[in-house]
Computed example of a mutant assay.
Amino acid sequence: MVDPANTPLGKMLLEEITPVVMVLCTPLVEESCLKNGLSFVQMLSPFCDFTNIDVPVRTASDQPYRLHKFKLRLFYASDIWQPNLEVAKERLKQVITKAGEDDFPEISSDLPQVNDLLSRHESEILPTWFQFFNKELVRTLSFSDHEAFDHPVACLLVVSSCDEEPINRFLDLFNTNKLPSLLNDGAMDPKILKHYLLVHDNQDGASEKSLGLLFNKMLRDVVFGG
């Protein structure tokens, strides 16, 4: 029997129905990351996929369950919104058209026989545009106010050591009008779990002592005092 996790649908579900972490960061954080050609979210994403783990989980019915895979999805706060229906339809149309155009050179007049198709694995006979369509479809349906699959379970606030008044920047990041409408309109729990990250680029040349003082102040005023 085929493992459901290895089917196209199973892989998509494992990929898309996972906890979301909302990211709020300062422009200087992005500038530091872009020196490597990556955004902050792109840089952190490879570290959000956990395999070969064995973690006990407490379920609602207290049934024993162990987690062997786990993944987080990171989204900037500015990306946590649901697109307009007409915009979503047009985007899906573009995705299918683009995928079809990319495949056109590979179209052959020698069509496979039915028996040959039936003997192939499902992933081998699905049109290549299908996975792109599925991914985009899930994206257009994300972040609705009537379901909580994509509502962030935590918020990561990220400040650069080069930011002016870094501690105040931490405090200001969450108190901004750039928060998702889900949170501002009350559809999402405002008492979201917060994690704080201080990013330092060694090229900026700050001393270890000054960084240590900043880190201790961050712990005192933000993590334990905020």
Rank of each mutant, 00 (worst) to 15 (best):
residue 2 V to R: 13
residue 10 G to T: 11
residue 10 G to F: 14
residue 13 L to V: 15
residue 14 L to W: 12
residue 17 I to H: 13
residue 24 L to R: 02
residue 26 T to F: 04
residue 41 V to E: 09
residue 44 L to D: 01
residue 45 S to P: 00
residue 46 P to A: 01
residue 46 P to M: 02
residue 50 F to P: 00
residue 50 F to C: 08
residue 50 F to T: 01
residue 56 P to R: 05
residue 62 D to N: 14
residue 70 F to H: 06
residue 74 L to C: 06
residue 76 Y to C: 04
residue 76 Y to H: 10
residue 82 Q to P: 02
residue 88 A to T: 00
residue 90 E to L: 14
residue 92 L to G: 03
residue 95 V to T: 11
residue 97 T to F: 11
residue 98 K to P: 00
residue 103 D to Q: 13
residue 105 P to G: 03
residue 107 I to V: 13
residue 108 S to D: 15
residue 111 L to T: 10
residue 112 P to L: 07
residue 113 Q to P: 00
residue 113 Q to H: 10
residue 113 Q to V: 05
residue 115 N to W: 10
residue 115 N to K: 12
residue 119 S to N: 14
residue 119 S to R: 08
residue 122 E to I: 15
residue 124 E to Y: 02
residue 125 I to P: 00
residue 129 W to I: 01
residue 130 F to W: 13
residue 136 E to L: 01
residue 138 V to Q: 05
residue 138 V to N: 08
residue 139 R to K: 15
residue 139 R to C: 14
residue 140 T to R: 03
residue 143 F to Q: 04
residue 145 D to G: 06
residue 146 H to P: 00
residue 147 E to F: 08
residue 147 E to T: 11
residue 147 E to A: 09
residue 147 E to C: 06
residue 148 A to W: 07
residue 149 F to W: 12
residue 153 V to T: 12
residue 156 L to T: 02
residue 157 L to R: 11
residue 158 V to G: 05
residue 160 S to F: 03
residue 162 C to A: 14
residue 164 E to Y: 11
residue 168 N to A: 12
residue 169 R to A: 15
residue 169 R to H: 09
residue 171 L to F: 02
residue 171 L to A: 10
residue 172 D to P: 01
residue 173 L to I: 02
residue 173 L to D: 02
residue 173 L to C: 03
residue 178 K to C: 07
residue 180 P to N: 07
residue 181 S to V: 07
residue 181 S to R: 09
residue 184 N to V: 04
residue 185 D to Y: 06
residue 185 D to L: 09
residue 189 D to G: 02
residue 199 V to M: 04
residue 204 D to E: 15
residue 204 D to G: 03
residue 204 D to K: 09
residue 208 E to P: 00
residue 210 S to Q: 12
residue 211 L to N: 06
residue 211 L to D: 08
residue 212 G to K: 06
residue 213 L to N: 12
residue 214 L to P: 08
residue 214 L to T: 12
residue 215 F to P: 00
residue 216 N to F: 09
residue 226 G to H: 12
